[in-house]
Every structure is written in C-alpha cells, then in structure tokens.
Amino acid sequence: MNAFRLAGDMTHLLSIILLLLKIRATKSCAGISLKTQELYVIVFMSRYLDLFRTYYSLYNSLMKIIFLGTSMCIVWYMRSHKVVRQTYNNDEDTFRHFFLVLPCFVLALLVHRNFTFIEILWTFSLYLESVAILPQLVLLQKSSNIDNLTGTYVFLLGAYRGLYLFNWVYRFFTENHRVRWIPWLSGLIQTAIYTDFFYYYIRSWKNREKLKLPA
C-alpha cells in the first residue's frame, strides 16, 4: 500500500471518529445531514457486499466492517437516540435521497464493466458516493453556525477521496498501466464537489474566522 492510499484511508477513518466524537461528547448532531449519512450506509452496503465472499487482507476486511458499523451507528444515533435525535436539523435537511439514488442506479445499469449483480452494485456505490455529500453541503449552506467539529469532519471526508486520486495516479505508473474510468471519474467528481467548501474552510482557518458558506 502506498502512502497516498494509507493517508486517504486514515483521513476517512479520522473523519468518522470525529463525527462520532461530536455526537457522543456533545450529545448533538446539529449541522449533520441524516440524508448524507443514510446514503453512506447504502454506499457501504452495496460496495462491501463481497466482504464475506472474497478475502483480501485483514486490514481490508477490518476497515470494511468499521465503515459499515460506524455508518449504521451514526444513523442510529440521529434517528433513535432520545437526546441526539432532538438536535437534528429536520426542517433544513430537505434534500431527497431519491433524486440521487435513482439516477446513480440507472447510470450503473447503463455504464459498468460487467453485467453482474456484484459489479452493478459496486459501480452504483461509486456513483452514489461521488454525490452523497450534496445533502450535507446544502445543509451547511443553510446553517448560520457551523461548529468546528462539523467543518473539520466535512473537510477530512472530502480530503480522503482527493488522496485516493493521488493513489490512483501513483498506482497507474507503478503497478499496471490500465485505465479505470469508473472509479477515477467518480473520485474526480466527488473531490470537485468539495472545491468550494475547501476554499471557504481553508480561508476561515487561515483568517481564524468562523466558517460560513455563502448561500
């Protein structure tokens, strides 16, 4: 495993730890989009379907279990925890899952590598992951008060796929020269969606100001 890949995975893991920390320590999920979190559950469930069928490494299986477990745990907190669920911005988190899930699924049916069950779901998970942050970004735009943990959570979550892009470039030159359009383009779009957020996050960090996104 190269350094970009490891850094990407660790950034992803750290973002989740940070979010769970925020929820557990402050007993609040204010500013967090349940829509985005539910989309991540769908992403992980459709991508890691092969978890018990094919084994690659202990690291790999462990990370998959962690991503599946934590994403479901976060959704549980936001939906069912008696204190946390009351802090959820129900009225502002208005993005409809359906408008992301359906087009991604149709696209996976049309654009894929092999027409098999596992392959279609894997492709669907990449398409869906690339846009899953949209409800969260829309919610942040509506929020006048974005706390540090939420801002940093979104920043790390965006940085993770960006680091994967470097990992793919690295692997392209060191392992085998084969073009993998589906993950590359999805990852590129995923990272590009964060561009605006990155700009405002870094600017607020440099100026030591509170993060605010223009509506």
């Binding site: 094919t54 490494s57 790999n60 990370m63 590598r113 894997w122 994967y164 084969r178 993998r180 993950p183």
Partner: peptide
C-alpha cells in the same frame, strides 16, 4: 488486474 484493485481498495 482489474479485480485486484477492486478487492484491495475501499
């Protein structure tokens, strides 16, 4: 090959 990437990436 293709499958190797798919299995070892997250």
């Amino acid at each position: 090959s293709h499958d190797k990437f798919k299995k070892d990436e997250l």
